[in-house]
């Protein structure tokens, strides 16, 4: 076995977020060589790059909450993001109902619903000590059930013109609003994780809960707050997705669930907690969206697409997702 594993580097010098960004750039440059790629046409290449970045925003924002939950450790994971995205999008859709004036109430409602579901997740995990995976999975079922009950297969509502303009259309120099929002959001996330007490405590409970508690961190409170915040961020994600698609449907959030975890892992955040960054997740979201859209443009059958996606993910995590061996 030793000989086999010797081929893979135990440690690489560049950090995972940087590696993921480099990978994204290389993949994108290579995609120009595809038969229906952009070839040597620079303006098309820029347009394509912008579009792929724009599409990554939604996964990127939704994966932000996932990043926090995973850093918080204790097998932390949030499987309710898909359902929360759908529910918050539906609620914003119904409240806004085509009026620009209702944009803020719609956004606040989406955030509040997300935070409330996250709070319940946190209480279940911190106080009832239910494993995060099954707690959030159960909550996802409950939320999906609620959507079915409330929606009965159809809702009436609409996005407002302002919402579409802000999220889906370019602001200046052809840069879509979503990308600008994402950059600002990324800075806020960086501030939160790296420059606040919350961030410090988050890494503390992620690496070792007992030490964290003995150093005065209120562990249960932190866990509840983290899940609630993650729910809130999923709610924001739902709002943004709604602004992009303009319509709601029952499974709209499901396609973000597992990719959000994959984006976190590809971005170099340890799934066991205590180590990670949101920039990594942003890079991971870019890589995953890029791979998915490349596979779509290559017009391969669904089966091949899934195999390539799975294989690529395996290769990616093999490069820098390796845990410490027992021998060291």
């Amino acid at each position: 076995m030793k000989r086999l594993t010797a081929f893979l580097p135990k440690k690489i010098a560049i950090s995972p977020p940087v590696a993921a960004v480099i990978l994204a750039v290389v993949l994108f440059l290579l995609s120009g060589l595809l038969p229906n790629g952009y070839g040597s046409n620079v303006s098309i290449a820029i347009a394509q790059a912008t579009n792929i970045t724009r599409l990554s925003v939604f996964l990127g924002v939704i994966a932000a909450g996932q990043t926090l939950v995973i850093i918080s450790g204790g097998e932390g994971i949030d499987l309710s993001v898909g359902a929360v995205v759908t529910l918050s999008a539906i609620i914003a859709y119904v409240i806004i109902n085509g009026q620009d004036g209702m944009l803020l109430p719609g956004l606040l409602a989406a955030l509040a619903v997300g935070a409330a579901i996250g709070l319940l997740n946190g209480i279940g995990v911190a106080y009832l000590r239910i494993a995060p995976l099954v707690m959030t999975l159960g909550m996802s079922g409950v939320v999906t059930g609620l959507i079915l009950v409330a929606q009965h297969g159809n809702v009436s509502g609409a996005v407002s013109p302002l919402m579409t303009r802000v999220i889906a259309r370019p602001w200046f120099f052809g840069i879509p609003g979503a990308i600008i929002i994402w950059i600002l959001f990324g800075l806020l996330m960086w501030l939160l994780i790296e420059r606040t007490t919350f961030g410090k405590n988050l890494f503390a409970i992620g690496s070792n809960r007992t030490t964290a508690r003995l150093s005065g961190v209120h562990v249960t409170g932190m866990v509840v707050a983290t899940y609630a915040l993650a729910g809130l961020l999923s709610g924001l994600g739902g709002f943004l997705v709604l602004g992009n698609t303009g319509v709601v449907f029952i499974a709209m959030g499901n396609s973000f669930l597992f990719p959000s975890i994959a984006a976190v892992a590809v971005g170099g955040t340890l799934l066991s907690g205590g180590k990670g960054s949101y920039f990594g997740t942003m890079a991971g979201a870019l890589v995953l969206t890029l791979i998915t859209s490349l596979l779509t443009t290559m017009q391969m059958p669904d089966s091949v697409r899934q195999m390539v996606l799975g294989g690529t993910l395996l290769v990616l995590i093999s490069i820098y997702g390796r845990q410490r061996g027992f021998r060291q």
Partner: peptide
């Protein structure tokens, strides 16, 4: 166990791989 990857993300990746194989066999 041998490459020491994290179980949840590894089996998630292979779940795509296997789902693709299933779809390939029976479109």
């Amino acid at each position: 166990s041998y490459l020491r990857l994290q179980p949840i993300i590894t089996t998630y990746a292979t779940s795509f791989l296997y789902a693709g194989v299933a779809l390939f066999i029976l479109p």
